[in-house]
Design a binder for these strands. Structure first.
Lengths: 333, 333
DNA sequence: CTGTTAGCGCATTCAC
DNA sequence: GTGAATGCGCTAACAG
């Protein structure tokens, strides 16, 4: 039942060298005579020898794997980030242990312990918010951490985001300038710092700039789901809102379809700008105008930053803001 | 720079026992006197000791991690499977190393070597097809393998799917019975066994049952993309097709929108049934009728099967077919 | 350039 | 019940 496990000793014996030499050629150490290098390489080929990464990890204290904590892989937003992460990880010879957290504090802590036990060289964390438990563990651990698409007001660890406040201000300003005096802010939980301290602040700033009053009844805090959005049309029309900035695409599609299914026209009666520019925005009719976050790039940059940290390189700035954009489609004028 | 690395020896010393005893309590070995177990547990708590999984893996030859090869995490179809896989993996105390393959044979082989080097206890493979290289590696390796949502005509390794041929036959039959005499088959590459040997066969079977001729000009083999679908409307209408069975949701949405954007009505002028019942089918207007594959469950069952294989349990049947369904929405009559 | 020798942290016999 | 000893496969000094 034992699988043909070929070790470094087998190679050493066949090549008439010591295991140290084999180790050297495997690790690209230059201190090996070309001739013997060739010989060793040949034996490695013949025996189909593959270094045992676990033993390697134990001896070198490096596993070349990073832990990635993600709320839910089947959420396109996070999955896009994950793809960027994995591509850069592969580029730098790292593997990724992917762990779903469901945004549950308890599960996050458990997952984190697990990842740390597996001796990951670094961690990438994604989520709508960062619990105190988790933040505490991060700062206690010596393992480098980077947040991707995730806000931490403390800025104790690395992070890669866009400027959410400014992006929010920008699109709300557009909505107002296009003639909407009652612009709704449709968001997920206000417990999330990103919604409360960044996007809502941007929303308020835009109103202020345009000398419009802040009206709390225009603020909708729900969950990030299609269903939640679908049921919002009644309240929105009742209150006289003529436009909305929505913080999540599925939610926005819900709002859109709720409107359409109840006889409203978009953008004639109601205008919508959403936040994530996922492919959904192109698939619905009318297509949705959206802030465009470079999701793939955010993941990629986060992973790149992490490689630098793991490599103990100098980091110029560990809080990175990537440029955002606004893609105008047919849900606005 | 060394992180406070607390080992089993530290615990042993503090608890006045040997490291063997600590190992026993950590691993739940019953041969430990309750009193000393308590003492050890207490010290573990105090020192915040966390067993090093790498050392454990080297000593026990088990890493409690499985490799998952996925074409692209940001594809909702595979991501849904991945979510099911991870949930069950977590349930059985396994972690997942996720690796994107882009369906590239070369990358797959590389990824596979990598995963094997990391000593994963098992492998789950997803993809539209299984290359000979990869299949060869699977049968040569002693590491258990399960395919999820992936066809292998050989049936040498475990697999979890739905009955693609039957599902295809079923929906095409419906389309025909609803009065469509020219039903298009819109597929990805015919190099993929799943399209060529299963779905197309189901399509042919349905035609035959209904005494309709097989017309090759109704077969469209393109790639799985929104854009590809969007441009198909001209050919479809030119040939007089009044309905289509589409093998991928993004592709189907493309077909739908292509039709609508060019003045056709769905389902009045053209009916569509798609294959994966992802959330996309609910987000477009009209909503798409779809075969429903239990994606999450397929992933979950695949992982469950793998745990059995890793545990060397008896497997009654390693080629599992899960039930499919058809969800009728508004793209059919 | 190459070989020898220690561990890395833990599971696992084998004694006691 | 518990402890001492061995080895998993490899990296990393240290000699030579």
């Amino acid at each position: 039942m034992d699988k043909q496990t070929i070790t470094i000793y087998d190679v050493a014996r066949e090549a008439n060298v010591s295991m140290a030499t084999v180790s050297r050629v495997v690790n690209g150490n230059p201190n090996v005579k070309p001739a013997t290098r060739q010989r060793v390489l040949k034996v490695i080929e013949e025996l189909d020898y593959r270094p045992n990464a676990v033993a390697r990890g134990l001896a070198s204290k490096k596993t070349t794997t990073v832990g990635v904590i993600i709320p839910d892989v089947s959420n396109i937003f996070f999955a896009s980030l994950a793809r960027g992460i994995d591509d850069v990880a592969t580029m730098y010879k790292y593997n990724i242990i992917l762990a779903n957290s469901d945004e549950s504090g308890q599960k996050e802590v458990q997952v984190l312990n697990n990842l740390l036990a597996k001796q990951v060289d670094g961690l990438i964390y994604m989520g709508h918010t960062l619990s105190d438990d988790v933040r505490a563990k991060f700062s206690r651990s010596k393992t480098p951490v980077v947040l991707a698409g995730t806000i931490d007001p403390d800025e104790q660890v690395g992070s890669v985001n866009i400027d959410y406040k400014e992006a929010s201000r920008f699109v709300v300003d557009k909505l107002v300038k296009d003639g909407n005096e009652k612009v709704a802010f449709i968001s997920g939980s206000m417990d999330y710092s990103i919604n409360r301290d960044y996007r809502l602040e941007g929303y308020k700033a835009a109103l202020k700039e345009n000398h419009l009053p802040y009206d709390e009844s225009l603020i909708f805090a729900t969950d990030y789901s299609y269903k939640a959005g679908e049921s919002l049309w009644a309240k929105l029309t009742a209150i006289g809102a003529t436009a909305a900035y929505v913080v999540d695409d599925e939610l926005a599609v819900g709002v859109l379809n709720g409107m359409l299914d109840h006889g409203m026209s978009v953008p004639e009666d109601f205008q919508i700008i959403t936040s994530n520019n996922t492919i959904l925005t192109e698939m619905v009719r009318p297509k949705l105008t959206s802030i465009s976050q470079p999701l793939y790039d955010m993941g990629a940059v986060a992973m790149r930053l992490l490689t630098k940290m793991m490599n103990k390189e100098e980091i110029e700035e560990k809080t990175i803001l990537l440029p955002y954009d606004m893609i105008e489609r047919n849900s606005t004028n």
